[in-house]
Simulated assay, not measured.
Amino acid sequence: MSDEREKREKLVELMRDMPIAMMTTYGSEGPHSFPMARQEVEPSAELWFITARDTRHVRDIGVDPRVSLTFSSRDSWVAMTGRAEIVDDRAKLGELWNTFAEAWLPGGPDNPDAVLVRVDVESAEYWDTPGGKISSLLSFVKTKLTGDTFDAEHGTVRP
Rank of each mutant, 00 (worst) to 15 (best):
R38H: 08
P65Y: 08
W104I: 01
V41H: 11
L69N: 10
L116N: 12
R90C: 11
R118S: 05
D88T: 08
E85S: 13
D64Y: 01
I86Q: 01
N98T: 10
D113I: 06
M80K: 11
L105P: 01
Q39A: 05
M80G: 07
A114I: 13
G107I: 08
V87E: 08
F49A: 15
T81D: 15
D64V: 02
V63S: 05
E85M: 08
E42N: 07
F49I: 15
F100E: 14
D60A: 09
I86A: 02
R74G: 11
A103Y: 05
G62Q: 06
I50H: 10
S76F: 02
N111R: 07
L96C: 11
G108C: 01
L96G: 13
P43G: 02
T81M: 13
T55C: 05
V58G: 02
V87L: 08
T70K: 00
F49H: 15
V87S: 10
K92M: 07
P112G: 09
A114R: 14
W104N: 02
R38P: 09
P65K: 08
F49W: 15
R59W: 00
G62A: 03
P112E: 08
T70R: 04
N98A: 07
N111A: 10
A101K: 04
L105R: 00
P31L: 15
F71H: 03
D113S: 14
K92T: 07
L47E: 11
T70G: 07
D110G: 15
R38Y: 06
L116W: 12
E102P: 00
I61W: 02
I86E: 02
R56E: 14
V87A: 08
S44C: 08
T70V: 13
W48Y: 12
R118N: 05
H32W: 15
T55P: 05
A52P: 00
A37G: 07
S73N: 10
L47R: 10
P35R: 12
P43W: 03
Q39C: 04
P43Q: 04
I61C: 03
E95M: 09
W97T: 02
M80I: 10
R66V: 01
D110N: 15
A37D: 08
S76P: 01
L93K: 06
